[in-house]
C-alpha cells in the first residue's frame, strides 16, 4: 500500500504542477530549502483566540517546515482543535497571524478558498456528505474548483479509493460504511485537491478500536510519502512513531515541544509529565 501511495502521490503532484499560482509558490518554498533557506509551510505568530470572555489560545508561536510531521498533544480543552482550525481559516484569530506558504490568512486580499484547496483537513466526525456517493464526495471539489471532467474526476476518485483500500465502495453512500471506512474516504476526499499540507483533528477518536489501525496505516503512508502534516491525536504511540516533532499544548499555550524522544523520553514540564502519566 505504501508504494502505491507514494507512486500515485507523486503522479498526482506532477499532473497538477502548473494548475495554480499557489501551487507554484508552494513549490518555490519547498525548493528554497536547497538554497539554504527554510522551506516554511506554516508560520504562526502570537496567535490569540477568544470566545467572548474566555481566551482559548493565549499566544501561540509555531513554525512548520515542508515535509514535517507534527503531532499536537494535550488535554481536552487545551485549544488543539482551535489551533488547527485557525490554520485553514475555519476560525478567525482574535489577534496574531497565520501564514500558509507565504499567504497571510488575515490579509483581506488573500483568497481563503484558494488557500484551503492546498490545506486538506480530516475531521474527527468525518463530515462526509450524505447526499452524495463516496466517489461524488471525492469528486466534488475537483469538479467544482478545477472543472475536472467528470470521467477524469471519477478515475481520480477510484485511484484515491484504491490507495485507502476502498475502491469497491466508490458508488455506495457514505452512511453505508463503517466509521473507519468513512474516515478513509474523508482522507481520500481531502487528498483529491492535491494539498500541500494535511491537518488531522483526532482522526481516530470517534472510531471503534478495531477500525483505528486501518486509518493510522493510511496516515502513516502519507507521512512516509513526504506529506507535510499536523496531527492532533491521542494516539501517543503513533505520534511517537511518525512525528518529526511533537508539540504539547495546555490551556491555550505551547507548554513544551521537541522530538518524540524528548517529549516522550525526557519530558521537562510538570504538566507534560502529569499528562503523559495519565495517558500512557
Amino acid at each position: 500500500m505504501n508504494q502505491t501511495l507514494n507512486r500515485t502521490k507523486s503522479e498526482l503532484e506532477d499532473s497538477a504542477m502548473d494548475t495554480s499560482r499557489l501551487t507554484q509558490r508552494i513549490r518555490q518554498t519547498q525548493q528554497s530549502d536547497e538554497q539554504g533557506q527554510t522551506g516554511v509551510a506554516i508560520m504562526i505568530k502570537d496567535l490569540h483566540k477568544r470566545y467572548g470572555d474566555t481566551e482559548v489560545l493565549k499566544g501561540i508561536d509555531m513554525e512548520v517546515k515542508s515535509g514535517e510531521v507534527i503531532s499536537i498533544i494535550g488535554p481536552s480543552g487545551a485549544g488543539k482543535s482551535t489551533l488547527l482550525r485557525c490554520i485553514n481559516a475555519l476560525e478567525r484569530p482574535s489577534s496574531g497571524s497565520v501564514t500558509v506558504y507565504g499567504m497571510d490568512l488575515s490579509d483581506p486580499k488573500t483568497n481563503i478558498d484558494k488557500v484551503r484547496e492546498h490545506v486538506g483537513m480530516v475531521f474527527q466526525h468525518f463530515n462526509l456528505f450524505p447526499n452524495m456517493s463516496v466517489a461524488e464526495n471525492i469528486m466534488l471539489a475537483p469538479r467544482m474548483l478545477h472543472k475536472t471532467p467528470k470521467e477524469d474526476a471519477y478515475q481520480q476518485a477510484l485511484d484515491l479509493l484504491e490507495i485507502v483500500g476502498l475502491k469497491e465502495k466508490a458508488d455506495v453512500r457514505p452512511t453505508d460504511l463503517s466509521g473507519g471506512q468513512q474516515q478513509r474516504v474523508a482522507i481520500a476526499r481531502a487528498l483529491a485537491m492535491n494539498p500541500a499540507v494535511m491537518l488531522f483533528d483526532e482522526a481516530t477518536s470517534a472510531l471503534d478500536p478495531e477500525m483505528v489501525g486501518d486509518v493510522l496505516e493510511v496516515i502513516r503512508s502519507l507521512a512516509e510519502g513526504g506529506m507535510t502534516m499536523i496531527l492532533v491525536t491521542h494516539e501517543m504511540g503513533f505520534a511517537r512513531e511518525v512525528s518529526s516533532r511533537v508539540i504539547f499544548t495546555d490551556a491555550g499555550v505551547i507548554e513544551e515541544e521537541g522530538t518524540p524522544e524528548q517529549i516522550f523520553g525526557t519530558p521537562q514540564s510538570p504538566r507534560l509529565r502529569s499528562f503523559l502519566s495519565k495517558v500512557l
Binding site: N88, L90, D113, K114, V115, R116, E117, H118, V119, G120, M121, F123, H125, F126, N127, L128, F129, P130, N131, L140, A141, M144, L145, A186, R189, A190, A192, M193
Partner: peptide, 27 residues
C-alpha cells in the same frame, strides 16, 4: 444540517455559495 457539513465543504476550498448549493441545500 450539521455544521460539520459546511466546514467539510469549506475545508476543501469550496465557496460558501458552492457549499450551500451542493451540500447544504440538498440536505
Amino acid at each position: 444540517v450539521d455544521t460539520g457539513q459546511m466546514e467539510g465543504a469549506r475545508s476543501l476550498g469550496l465557496t460558501r455559495r458552492m457549499a450551500l448549493r451542493r451540500v447544504i441545500l440538498p440536505q
